[in-house]
Nucleic acid binder design. Sequence first.
RNA 1: GCCCGAAUAGCUCAGCCGGUAGAGCGACGCUCUCGUAAAGCGUAGGUCAGGGGUUCAAAUCCCCUUUCGGGCUCCA
Length: 658
Amino acid sequence: MSAISVSLPDGSVRELAEGSSAADLAAAIGPRLAADAVVAVVDGAERDLAAPLGDGAAVEIVTAATERGLHTLRHSTAHVLAQAVLDLYPGATFAIGPPIEHGFYYDFELPDGATFADADLERIEARMREIIEADQPFRRVEMAAEDALELFEAHPYKRAIIEAVALGVAAGGDLASEASEGGRVSCYHNDGSDGFVDLCLGPHVASTGRLGHFALQRVSGAYWRGSERNPMLQRIYGTAWATRKDLAAHLHRLAEAERRDHRRLAAELDLVSWPAELGPGLAVWHPNGALVRTLMEDYSRGRHADGGYQFVYSPHIAKSVLWETSGHLDFYAESMYPPMEMDGTDYYPKPMNCPFHVMVYRSSQRSYRDLPMRLFELGAVYRYELSGAVHGLLRSRGFTQDDAHIFCARDQIATELASLLEFVLSVLAAFGFSEFQAKLSTRPAEKYVGDEALWDDATAGLRAALETAGLDYATDEGGGAFYGPKIDVDVRDAIGRSWQLSTIQVDFNLPERFGLEYVASDGSRPRPVMIHRALFGSVERFFGVLVEHFAGAFPAWLAPVQATVLPVAAAHADYGAEVAATLRRLGLRVETSPAEEPLGKRVRNAKVAKIPYVLVVGDDDAAAGTVGVNARGAKKPERDVPLEEFAARLAAEVEARS
RNA sequence: GCCCGAAUAGCUCAGCCGGUAGAGCGACGCUCUCGUAAAGCGUAGGUCAGGGGUUCAAAUCCCCUUUCGGGCUCCA
């Protein structure tokens, strides 16, 4: 028997018997690797472990410890889900079942339009565990597309995929992962099953026994190929991990996210509510929420004043002619509220503030000496969001943009962008965010306005700003809007979720449409460039993100109540009032709670309200001018802290915004 | 907008196969005056989201509407 040699990622070379597979290679390297192996990457392409290796191949054994391995694990688990559903629901057919972040899903169609209920998940999951227990091998078979069409005769969605990927019938791009190209497709049989076979490009784990740390999560509807013109399929979502521990950690993160849900905390902390009478996506702000919001806005205004911005205001509605000129009625109409007619003219609620700021710019002749001109407004906008898309403060129909528009000369773009990005990051950092991820979106291939040199300049400016800021960023080639390139900034919150907040967009379009110009030093009249910039994005959404980030425990500078004073008994009420008054004179937000309830109860109430400091005052304190300090998060309370010392400490904490 | 699910006291929820509404917390009142996460007793509070239908009888079954949740799509 002749031998083949293959190379490993570390550069070493191994001799194997001809016909050996990646699984054999893993076994030859060590039993641990053989057990952990999920798939192989052979000459750069993912392959099943069972696939025979060619002489001279470069082979990497992939374990579930890597993203790639996990991906396969999840993909294979999706197949097991499909097998379970087809077993349990006669007449069911299946569509696609890819791995996704943290898990997988599979889309099905049940006979006679039947649907899954949450209770079905238990039954399906039990069947999946039986399939995993049976340790069925995944066996790859390649065949001509025509044969596959016959094999999947009873499954119209599979047939559609085959036609799309192998026979050139137009289809959505994400389906390409489901089968191979060139008139041939691949399928995976589960040996030992009741003849289950799925159309799939692979690769898969060696057998179902390799799987197991998964949970089915929910069922929902999803359109075939994501288009609302297509039939609605039944989608089942699940999560799958390499180890029991990873699965438990993921489920714990989900529970933590639920605990932090801003809609729940908004009710518990009396911040915001959504009365049904207002309609979807429309909130009212209660005193506590409004106070936090005011503090956020005041801080933002202060920073903008320092940053050379000028404040402007604009109305909530404007005549249709404004939106015709701006182009919004052409490309944004479906997100706009319908017009209201008055005196024979249509007025539209504004979905954006930019045209108004353009009006401010255009209100008088501008000189190069006026540039860059930075206009800022906390502008309320209204957008028609699909009713099913509305979600608390994070997605609403009315919200307030912290919107700035910067008008500058072409040669000022780069410096302006650099200082702009630095400004954005510095303000976000003040709210407790330290991890950022940016995305640079460049010129679309087809439809765009402005000349290429201008795009190149602006894009280079954005890139330089990102690099100066030392920001981690990805480039979305061709992902920019038609009117200019942009940077989006995501922040990572306390439990690792990322939120898209800030955006910096260069715009060559509006200055053109509104015929903006300025008088240059040589007397010529060039067009200014406009930069749109939202920092919080939406004040409401940013507030919601903050609530979740802090789990409702706002830092002292933002907390609606910074300290609560609890007299031990009625006899200490006067001293308690004195303590509260002293702190209030320093501008601190302090409440007192009289001794009508037991102290333990009042401490509990303060803790539940997530108040940063609980101050307990009794005989000793009244005599010595001290307070007992029970700080949020501290292991045990401090006793006999001089009032001046505590006041200075809280004032310093507020000042430092820590 | 579409699919699935949900809506019972201010909040969290119980209420089975239809027989006519309950708890805990909260609020209010009285008692208790207390050194660090829930004192005791009492009172009020619900057209069971709204409307229609089936039935001797509907919180419960059916239809419509509204709002919410999870998705699809979209996005700040």
